[in-house]
Design a protein around this nucleic acid. Structure first.
Lengths: 191, 191
DNA sequence: CAACGGCCGTTAAATATTCAACACGCGTTC
DNA sequence: GAACGCGTGTTGAATATTTAACGGCCGTTG
């Protein structure tokens, strides 16, 4: 179907080390005080190379967020197509697993003032997922779907934030079970 | 004096990841079963790139050993020129610090059959250091200097090996003190 | 025997990255 | 104000690495 031109190993490698370096710094100090020099040094990469992939540090932050949101989307998309499971609503564990596997990133995002975009994007992602699920169920709702989705999504993110900022005191399975029950109680999908 | 052409960052980076990858594998499995493919994959580097720096895995092993021996040598050389301290005999702590700081490497070396060259090189390094020190002292020895050096060097390496293979149960300072006392008792240098 | 898969060591051309140098802005110091 | 250090963003030429291919060797499998 689409041309599968796999990207050059060097590109993957440098992008990886740049984002790793950046996220480390992001969790260490204020975003405004991070310099491209620092990022490049820690990534063991020439300063110019950073500009080859990102226009500035704001762009870098955006790309980092985008990347993870896209990962989450494709994670749910993949599972939508499965005949067995159905997205993050009925089986939220994989999503929690993803949060766990990328703890450094999400931890940095939740503990930093700078992450407006991150919250927005994540909220949109969750809301869309919930909307899709609710629209599929036939029950005519008393509460407007969009409002309910916003309500639930905010709640969900609140839980995730709490879980991450407390260094994940519970297992992903436990969290998934809890959230699924909450979704059920609020009739996000008909039991 | 000599032209200080600093080597390209890319070279340093790839050499670093290749040796890191190699030493990991070296501590995990038998040397003969390690393939260049594995090394390259784990280093996140093209297979051909390995050949750009090393002719084969034997060469790679040799270079790794050589590199650390040279580090040790320059470490001692630097301290020789100091007016205060005098090489590894009177103050062995920096040497132990070096062993500690590169524990993965030395651990791999001591726990693997393959490290003939390593033992030889290390033994030579220690012996030379001892010889130099002993020749400087005026006392006419009953025991031949070279024999004594061999004796002491083997003993020293034995201690280091024990220390490394037992995961460094004592501090470097403690080990240094012990060794200095042993050297003193055996009159490597006049007290 | 033949076919195959895996690893080796090497090559030419394409490409990503480095290096060294710009010009610029901004705050500090003398 | 001038000189300076420091970070930004950009450039062109040099260079390291990748990619995709080659032929060869060896052990396994049919």
């Amino acid at each position: 179907m689409e041309s599968v031109v796999k990207t050059d190993r060097r590109i993957l490698r440098t992008k990886q080390s740049i984002t790793k370096s950046f996220l480390e710094l992001f969790s260490e100090k204020d975003f405004e005080h991070i310099t491209i020099n620092e990022i490049a040094d820690r990534a063991n990469v020439n300063r110019g190379t950073v500009y080859l992939h990102y226009s500035d540090k704001y762009d870098l932050l955006d790309k980092c967020i985008e990347e993870h949101i896209n990962e989450l989307i494709s994670l749910c998309k993949k599972r939508e197509h499965d005949t067995v499971s159905h997205g993050m609503v009925q089986e939220p564990k994989p999503v929690f697993d993803y949060f766990r596997d990328h703890f450094p990133f999400f931890s940095a995002m939740f503990s930093n003032q700078r992450a407006f975009l991150f919250r927005d994007q994540l909220l949109k992602f969750i809301t869309v997922n919930l909307m899709v699920k609710m629209e599929r169920s036939d029950n005519t709702p008393i509460i407007d779907n969009e409002i309910k989705a916003q309500f639930m999504a905010s709640a969900f993110i609140g839980i995730v934030e709490w879980w991450i900022r407390h260094h994940m005191p519970q297992s992903t399975q436990f969290m998934a079970d809890q959230v699924r029950n909450l979704f059920e109680n609020n009739q996000v999908y008909p039991r």
